[in-house]
Design a binder for these strands. Structure first.
Length: 439
RNA sequence: AGAGAGGUGGCAGAGUGGUCGAAUGCGACGGUUUCGAAAACCGUUAUACCGGCAACGGUAUCGGGGGUUCGAAUCCCCCCUUCUCUACCA
């Protein structure tokens, strides 16, 4: 979430950013938050004062009570003088009264903090200056296009036909065991999956990312840490019995490794890569977009995450983008890079590049990766900080990107490389697969 | 899942309801000493919020949340978690 100090000190900037993201209730929300902030601070002050008074009284009462109690022991005879007796009674009265004030201040404070928190959670991240204006997908900026689209024969088939033809992915079977959107990978289809995962992980490791195998169920705090909660609650599968969420992306467990951490500067930047299954409820999605492998409830993905010092994060973002492009180039897939416009960007991102591969038989671009810089938006929730040369602790920047998501890569590989007798896989996968063609 | 024992500062490890943010040791940092280093000695060594330009002052935090009390690391309740034994299991 946004830092309250930024809202206070750079209100105009915040409002402009929210407008660029097409966040409609920005001005009202910001005004409400600042108003609550005023009240919060004054309540905090009166709480502190009442508490100070209570503490002082307690300090005065202690010795007097002790002396009074020792009166029972003749040798000590610590009876209080009349003056002391009066003081004691007065201290006790004051202490009780201060206690009441603390109590009410605390109740009000909790209420105000809760309201402020809820409003802050609603605010999306502010877009980076280079983010194009725009409301939706058609306003995204095409940064570059790479590779040549293959020309397919007249009998070319979309991947949902090809997978049947070669019996490598079975949707009906998944439907039987689980439900729609949970395909079963078989034979060369299963081996191709495993090959791609290994290829992606090896490439990530070679690029300096530490390989991590995180849990794929996370608790509520982790969901809040990376911003899936509270606003995207319905998109995650939730195990109510244990109050755990199936991860929609490895970003969640990986980034949360550093929740509530102050990272030593010599450990920066943090670079992590992990392969996990990802689960998305995608409630309400339907239509031609979701055929075949285009949209699934469960899929595999290799994710890369970086945590950097603030002035390093945009360099890291470009490096991550270059890494993902390298993967696509090695897979020999035509792709394009988009810089998302303000209205199409994710809630938590400051700048996002989407990478799309050309799906030849479908004749459309498929998003296979999204590489984002969140700046301090996640770090603020995560309390992920570092100490800059002996100074104060400071929030870090978090970034992540898919490198890569499997199903759409598979779809493009199948469609783009099909021949009438089989599918020729790109060279780089031959040794990983143990075969060169499907069929 | 059942029984028992624990969870204290970067780590180790004390702690009686009453100046306990918390002894002590280690580690780290700064200094003295040294040609340099080691050793020794001295000092510093959490996070967050509020007020203040700042110096600084206040408040909270001893797994988490409630409660008792003028006052809780210390007493009571609930939850989480670690270890040991038993049961079960890949």
């Amino acid at each position: 979430m946004l830092q309250i100090s930024v809202l206070r000190d750079q209100t105009e900037l915040v409002l402009a950013g929210l407008a660029k993201k097409h966040y409609a209730t920005g001005p009202a929300d910001v005004a409400a938050i600042l108003d609550l902030d005023q009240r919060r601070r004054s309540l905090q002050t009166s709480h502190d004062q009442a508490k100070t008074e209570g503490n002082e009284m307690a300090r005065l009462i202690g010795p007097l009570l002790k002396k009074q109690n020792s009166a029972a022991i003749p040798a000590l005879d610590g009876s209080l003088s009349p003056m002391e007796g009066i003081s004691l009674a007065s201290y006790q009265r004051q202490a009780t009264e201060a206690k009441e004030r603390v109590k009410t201040a605390l109740l009000d404070l909790a209420q105000v903090e809760k309201e402020q928190q809820q409003l802050l959670y609603k605010l999306p991240n502010l877009p980076h200056a280079s983010v194009p204006q725009g409301r939706a997908a058609q306003d995204n900026e095409v940064v570059r296009e790479h590779g040549t689209k293959p020309t397919l024969g007249p009998d070319a088939q979309p991947h949902w036909e090809l997978i049947k033809k070669y019996d490598i992915i079975d949707f009906e079977l998944g439907n039987k065991i689980t439900g729609a959107g949970f395909p079963v990978y078989k034979n060369q289809g299963a081996r191709l999956q495993r090959a791609l995962i290994n290829f992606f992980l090896d490439e990530a490791r070679n690029a300096g990312y530490t390989e991590i195998q995180p849990p794929i169920l996370v608790n509520e705090a982790s969901g809040y840490g990376t911003g899936q909660l509270p606003d995207k609650e319905g998109q995650m599968y939730h195990d109510a019995k244990d109050d755990l969420y199936l991860i929609p992306t490895a970003e969640v467990p990986l980034t949360n490794i550093y929740r509530d951490e102050i990272i030593a500067p010599d450990k920066l930047p943090v670079r992590m890569a992990g392969h996990t299954p990802c689960f998305r409820r995608e409630a309400g999605s339907w239509g031609a977009d979701v055929r075949g492998l285009n949209r699934l409830h469960q899929f595999d993905k290799v994710e890369i995450v970086q945590i950097t010092e603030p002035d390093q994060s945009y360099g890291a973002l470009e490096a991550m983008l270059a890494h993902v492009e390298g993967l696509l180039q090695q897979l020999n897939l035509p792709y394009r890079v988009l810089r998302l416009c303000g209205g199409d960007m994710g809630f938590t991102a400051a700048l996002t590049y989407d990478l799309e591969v050309w799906s030849a038989a479908q004749g459309r671009w498929l998003e296979v990766s999204s590489v984002s810089n969140f700046e301090t938006y996640q770090a603020n929730r995560l309390k992920c900080r570092y100490r800059a040369d002996g100074g104060k602790t400071q929030l870090l920047h978090t970034l992540n990107g898919s490198a890569l998501a499997l199903p759409r890569i598979v779809a493009a590989l199948l469609e783009n490389n099909q021949t009438s007798t089989g599918i020729d896989l790109p060279q780089v996968l031959h040794s990983y697969c143990g075969f060169e063609r499907i069929g």
